[in-house]
Design a binder for these strands. Structure first.
Length: 906
RNA sequence: GGGCAAUUAGCUCAGUUGGUUAGAGCGCACGAUUCACAUUCGUGAGGUCACAAGUUCGAACCUUGUAUUGCCCACCA
C-alpha cells in the first residue's frame, strides 16, 4: 500500500522532478529517419529580463504541444535560447552605471569596457532566466540552447547581411530618424510611444503671413513657406520670394504649395524645418531643398541659432519667444494647445528627429527566385501566407499581416548603440583620419560625419581588411535583424548541419500577437531569403508552418501588466511557489483563446491549485484501493464487469478523442477544460462514489487513472509525474506513450443508463435539499415510471450502492427490482414515506408550472413540425431529432400529469 | 483619419459548420460532512446574448446600421 500526503505539496517535488527529467535526457530528441520531427523554436526571452506572465503563457502552451507530440512518438525538439536585447540591455546597464556615479558611461568607459560591463551583467541574468524557465516545467532541449550573440549566430548575421549587401538590398541612406538625445540612439518607429502634452502654440508674423508653431526654436533657418494650393487666402503669394525680418536678422523666403498642408490647421501656412521633422524632410526631398541642421545630437542648438547656440531646447524656447515679442513678431499665443510628443518607449526620452546616414534594407527590389519568378522581399512575405504555406491562428491576423506588409517601408537596420551585432561594414580612410578616430571612445556613425572623416571605400567584411587603414562601422544592427534568423541560425545555419536538415522548417511558432510585425514577419523575410539563396525548394524555406498567437495577459482591470504598476502585477514565479507550477500553467491556459487578451487574478490560480489537489486526492484514493498498480490492464475489455465500468471507459475514450481533436486544432483551453470536467465531474463525483463499497473494480480504476495521467501530463507535468512514480513505474511518464484511441470500446447503452441514474440521484438530492431532510436520515424515494424497469434491472448494483450512499430506499411498485430492494428495508432504522416529506400543494404548483413550460415547448415543436418549409428545407437529421424530442416531451407531459394525479390523491 | 476586433449571469470568460431548454469558474444564498479531498460535497438563485432592422423553416452565431469599449497603423507645423 502506498501512502500519500493528504494534500499535494508542489514545492516538495517540482525541482526534484525537473532534475530527473533533465538528467534522463528526455528533453533531447534523436535525429531518426523512423521518427517524424516536431519542432518549436522558443521565442528567446531577453537575457536581461526576468520571467513575466507573457513568458509563462508562452512556455505553458509550447510545453503542452511538445510533451504531447513527444508522447505520440515524434522526435520533439523545443529549442530554447535567450536574446541579447540590444537597447534594453545597454540602457539598463548605462542607467546602473550612472547611478553609481559614472555620468556618461560611453565617454567615460569607452567601447570595450562598457561592453565588458554589459556582458558580465547579461551573463548573470541569463542564468536567472534559464532557471526561471526550468521552474515553469519547460521540457526544452538545453543541450541545444542558443544565445543570439553566440559566435555561430553572429556569423549567421554577418552572412545574412553580406549576401543582402552584395545583392544590393542593403544601402546607406539619408533619413530622418527618431533620435533619442537622452539615450544617444536612433529609435525605430515601432519603439515610439506618443504622449499627450499641453503646450503653447505660437502665432508668429513671418513676412506677409502668420505661421503657427509649437516649436519656435527650430525655425532659425526656415526659408520656405508652404500653403495648400487651393487655399484662397494665400493664392497671390504662390511662388513669390521676399525678405523677411526674422529672429536673427533678415532672411530670404519663398512660398511653395503642397497638398499635404491642412488649411484648417493653425493659419494654413507653415514654414519647414527639414532636418528635424519627417514631413518637412519629405517635402524638402521632393522640392530638392537644403536641410540645415539646427539642433545637435545632445538636443542643443547649433551655431545657426546665434546668441542661443549651445542652449537646450527647454532653455532656449522662452528666450526666443521673448525676442520675437520684442521684435513685434509674436502675434498671439494659444495656451491650450495639445499635441502628441513622441518618446522612446525604453527610457522615455523625448524624440528629436535628425538626419543621419543609416543602413536600410530595400524591401521592394526583386531579389528572390520564388516559384519561378523573381520577387521582392515583400511579395514573398505575402505569398507564403496567401498560398497557405504558413497558417496564422487565429486567421484574422492574416488580414492584419497583409495590411502591414503592403504599407511596409524599407527597414532601418542600424542602431547607434554598442551592445549587439556590430555592422560588418568597414570604411577605408586615410592614416590621419584613422588616428583622429581612435581618440574617440564614444564612437558612433554620427561621429564619422561630424569629424569629417573622408570615406575612401566601403566594404563588407567580417574582420578588418588588411589593405590599408579601416574603420569598422561603429553602429550595431537592430535586435530583430538577428532574431529574424532564429529558427535556422539556432540549428547551425549557414552550415547545413544534420539538425538543420532534419528539424527545419519548424512546426509551430507560438508567441504573443504584439510581436507579429517585430519578429514573426521578419523571420519569414529572413528565412525565405537565406534558404532560397542556399537553393532549398520553396516549401523548405519557410521558418515555420503555423503561427499561433496567444492573447496577452492583463490584470483584473484590463491593463497590460507591467513593472510600472506593481500593485496589480502578478509574478508567475511567486505564484508558482505559492500554488504550484501546475496550477499557474492551468490558470494561464484555460480561458486563453488565440489572439484575445485574458484577465488574470490570483483567485483563478488558487482555483486550479484546488484542481491539482483534487487530482492528487483522487489518485490517493485509487492507490488505496488498487492492490497492484503494476498490473497490466491495457486490454481493458477483459476487466470490465459492470455497466458502470463500461460507462466510465466509454467516457474516457470519448475524452481521449476530444482532447486529440482539441490539441490538433490548437484549442488548448477547451482541451484542458474537458479533462477538468471529466476528472472532477465524472471520475470523482460519480465513478469513485459509485465504486465505493464492496465491489470496487480496481482494474478499471487503474486503467482510467493511468490514462488520465497521460492526458493530463502535458498540462500539469509535475503532479502527474509524481503520481506516476508513486504507482511504482520505473520509467517516467514524460517518456510514456499517449493514449491511443481507435474508436473501439464505446458502450452507448451504458452511457445513457448511467446518465439517467445520475439524473435520478440528483433529483433525490434536490428533493432532500428542498425538504431539508438531513443526510443521516434514511428516506424512501419513489422512482416514477418513465425510467424503465429494464434499466433498473441491469444496473441493480449501481443503484443499490448509490442508494446506500444516499441513505435512500428505492421503491417502484410492481417491479422485479423493487422486490429485491424491499429486502433492504429491513436494514433501515427510519422509514419515512416520500409523500410525507414535502408540501404537496407547492409540489403540485411546481409540476403545473412544468406542464405549462413543456406545453409551450411542445407547441413550438409541433408548429415547426407541421411547417412544410421546415420539413422540406431542414436537414433530415434535425427533423428526426425534433420528432424524437416531441415524443419525449409528450411522454414527459404524461408523467407529470400522472405525478400530479398521484399527489392529488394523497 | 485608415484598419482590426470586442459587447453573453454580479465578476472573468467559453460557446467549433446557424439546429433541442445559451454554459463554466469565481462570487452569492441555503444545506452537508469522521469513512480520498474544508484546497471537500450537495442544492439553488442569477441572462431581452449591447440596440435596431434584415436574411432564414430556424440567429448569440450570417448581413446592414447604431451605440459603447479596446487594440493596431498613420498624422499632429
Amino acid at each position: 500500500m502506498i501512502e500519500l500526503e493528504k494534500a499535494y505539496e508542489s514545492a516538495k517535488y517540482e525541482d526534484v522532478i525537473y532534475e530527473r527529467w533533465e538528467k534522463s535526457a528526455a528533453f533531447v530528441p534523436k535525429i531518426s529517419p523512423k521518427k517524424k520531427p516536431f519542432v518549436i523554436s522558443m521565442p528567446p526571452p531577453n537575457a536581461t529580463g526576468t520571467l513575466h506572465l507573457g513568458h509563462a503563457v508562452m512556455l505553458a502552451l509550447e510545453d503542452i504541444m511538445i510533451r504531447q507530440k513527444r508522447m505520440q512518438g515524434y522526435s520533439a525538439l523545443w529549442l530554447p535560447g535567450t536574446d541579447h536585447a540590444a537597447i534594453a540591455s545597454q540602457s539598463f546597464v548605462e542607467k546602473k552605471l550612472q547611478a553609481q556615479g559614472i555620468k556618461r558611461p560611453r565617454e567615460d568607459l569607452g567601447r570595450d569596457k562598457l561592453l565588458e560591463e554589459i556582458k558580465s551583467f547579461v551573463e548573470t541574468s541569463k542564468n536567472t532566466i534559464r532557471n526561471q524557465i526550468r521552474k515553469m516545467g519547460a521540457s526544452c532541449d538545453w543541450t541545444r540552447e542558443k544565445y543570439t550573440l553566440d559566435a555561430g549566430l553572429n556569423h549567421a548575421v554577418n552572412v545574412f547581411f553580406g549576401r543582402m549587401f552584395e545583392d544590393g538590398l542593403i544601402y546607406h541612406g539619408d533619413r530622418i530618424v527618431n533620435w533619442d538625445p537622452r539615450m544617444q540612439t536612433t529609435v525605430a518607429d515601432d519603439e515610439l510611444e506618443y504622449k499627450e502634452e499641453k503646450t503653447n502654440f505660437y502665432y508668429i508674423q513671418y513676412g506677409p503671413v502668420v505661421i503657427g508653431t509649437a516649436r519656435p526654436e527650430t525655425k532659425f533657418e526656415d526659408k520656405i513657406i508652404v500653403v495648400h494650393p487651393d487655399d484662397n487666402r494665400y493664392k497671390k503669394l504662390h511662388g513669390k520670394e521676399f525678405e523677411v525680418d526674422w529672429i536673427n536678422g533678415s532672411i530670404k523666403a519663398k512660398v511653395i504649395t503642397d497638398r499635404c498642408i491642412d488649411p484648417q490647421m493653425g493659419t494654413g501656412a507653415m514654414t519647414i524645418t527639414p532636418a528635424h521633422s519627417l514631413v518637412d524632410f519629405e517635402l524638402a526631398e521632393r522640392f530638392k531643398l537644403e536641410k540645415p541642421r539646427i539642433i545637435d545630437l545632445e538636443g542643443k542648438l547649433l551655431d545657426v541659432a546665434g546668441e542661443f547656440a549651445g542652449m537646450s531646447i527647454s532653455q532656449a524656447r522662452p528666450k526666443i519667444v521673448e525676442k520675437l515679442k520684442e521684435k513685434g513678431l509674436l502675434v498671439k499665443v494659444d495656451e491650450n494647445y495639445v499635441h502628441n510628443i513622441a518618446v522612446n518607449y525604453r527610457g522615455k526620452g523625448v524624440i528629436e528627429p535628425q538626419i543621419m546616414k543609416q543602413w536600410f534594407m530595400d524591401v521592394n527590389k526583386p531579389a528572390i527566385e520564388w516559384k519561378g519568378k523573381r520577387m521582392s522581399i515583400k511579395d514573398v512575405m505575402i505569398d507564403v501566407v496567401e498560398s497557405g504555406m504558413i497558417k496564422i491562428v487565429p486567421k484574422r491576423f492574416e488580414k492584419i499581416y497583409f495590411h502591414w506588409i503592403k504599407n511596409l517601408n524599407d527597414w532601418c537596420l542600424s542602431r547607434q548603440i554598442w551592445w549587439g551585432h556590430q555592422i560588418p561594414i568597414w570604411f577605408k580612410v586615410s592614416a590621419e583620419d584613422k588616428k583622429k578616430w581612435s581618440h574617440h571612445p564614444e564612437s558612433s556613425s554620427y561621429l564619422l560625419q561630424s569629424l569629417k572623416i573622408k570615406i575612401l571605400e566601403t566594404r563588407f567584411s567580417e574582420s578588418e581588411p588588411a589593405d590599408g587603414h579601416w574603420i569598422h562601422d561603429p553602429d550595431t544592427l537592430d535586435t530583430w535583424f538577428s532574431s529574424a534568423l532564429w529558427t535556422f541560425s539556432s540549428l547551425g545555419w549557414p552550415e547545413h548541419t544534420d539538425d538543420l536538415t532534419y528539424f527545419h522548417p519548424t512546426d509551430v511558432l507560438e508567441t504573443g500577437y504584439d510581436i507579429l510585425f517585430f519578429w514573426v514577419a521578419r523571420m519569414i523575410l529572413a528565412s525565405t531569403y537565406c534558404l532560397r539563396y542556399d537553393g532549398l525548394p520553396e516549401e523548405r524555406c519557410i521558418p515555420f508552418k503555423t503561427v499561433y498567437l496567444h492573447g496577452l495577459i492583463r490584470d483584473i482591470h484590463g491593463r497590460k501588466m507591467s513593472k510600472s504598476s506593481p500593485e496589480t502585477c502578478i509574478d508567475p514565479l511567486e505564484m508558482a511557489k505559492k500554488y504550484g507550477t501546475d496550477a499557474v500553467r492551468l490558470s494561464l491556459i484555460i480561458g486563453n483563446t488565440p489572439g484575445n487578451d485574458m484577465r488574470l487574478n490570483e483567485e483563478k490560480i488558487a482555483g486550479y491549485r484546488n484542481f491539482v489537489n483534487k487530482i492528487w486526492n483522487a489518485s490517493r484514493f485509487a492507490l488505496l484501493n488498487i492492490p497492484d498498480p503494476q498490473k497490466d490492464v491495457d486490454d481493458i475489455e477483459r476487466f470490465i464487469k459492470t455497466g458502470t465500468d463500461r460507462w466510465i471507459v466509454t467516457k474516457l475514450h470519448r475524452l481521449i478523442h476530444e482532447i486529440n481533436t482539441d490539441l490538433a486544432k490548437y484549442r488548448f483551453s477547451d482541451g484542458a477544460n474537458k479533462i477538468y470536467e471529466f476528472i472532477w465531474g465524472e471520475l470523482c463525483d460519480w465513478y469513485l462514489e459509485i465504486s465505493k463499497g464492496e465491489s470496487m473494480n480496481s482494474d478499471v480504476l487503474l486503467y482510467v487513472l493511468k490514462n488520465v495521467l497521460r492526458l493530463l501530463h502535458p498540462f500539469v507535468p509535475f503532479v502527474t509525474e509524481v503520481i506516476w512514480s508513486k504507482l511504482g513505474n520505473s520509467e517516467m511518464l514524460i517518456g510514456d506513450s499517449w493514449p491511443k484511441y481507435d474508436g473501439g470500446l464505446i458502450y452507448e447503452e451504458d452511457e445513457k443508463k448511467i446518465e439517467i441514474i445520475k439524473e435520478i440521484i440528483s433529483s433525490i438530492r434536490s428533493i432532500r435539499a428542498d425538504n431539508k431532510i438531513e443526510h443521516t436520515q434514511k428516506i424512501q424515494a419513489v422512482i416514477y415510471a418513465g425510467k424503465s424497469t429494464a434499466l433498473l434491472e441491469s444496473h441493480k448494483d449501481t443503484i443499490f450502492r448509490m442508494a446506500r450512499l444516499e441513505n435512500l430506499i428505492i421503491k417502484e411498485e410492481g417491479d422485479k427490482v423493487s422486490k429485491a430492494l424491499w429486502k433492504l428495508i429491513g436494514e433501515i432504522d427510519l422509514y419515512i414515506p416520500l409523500e410525507g416529506l414535502f408540501d404537496i400543494k407547492k409540489e403540485i404548483e411546481k409540476l403545473k408550472h412544468q406542464i405549462v413550460e413543456t406545453e409551450n415547448k411542445l407547441h413550438g415543436l409541433s408548429s415547426r413540425l407541421s411547417n412544410s418549409s421546415f420539413l422540406n428545407k431542414a436537414p433530415a437529421e434535425i427533423v428526426a431529432k425534433e420528432k424524437e424530442l416531441m415524443l419525449q416531451l409528450q411522454k414527459e407531459l404524461e408523467t407529470i400529469n400522472q405525478k400530479i394525479k398521484e399527489l392529488e390523491n394523497l
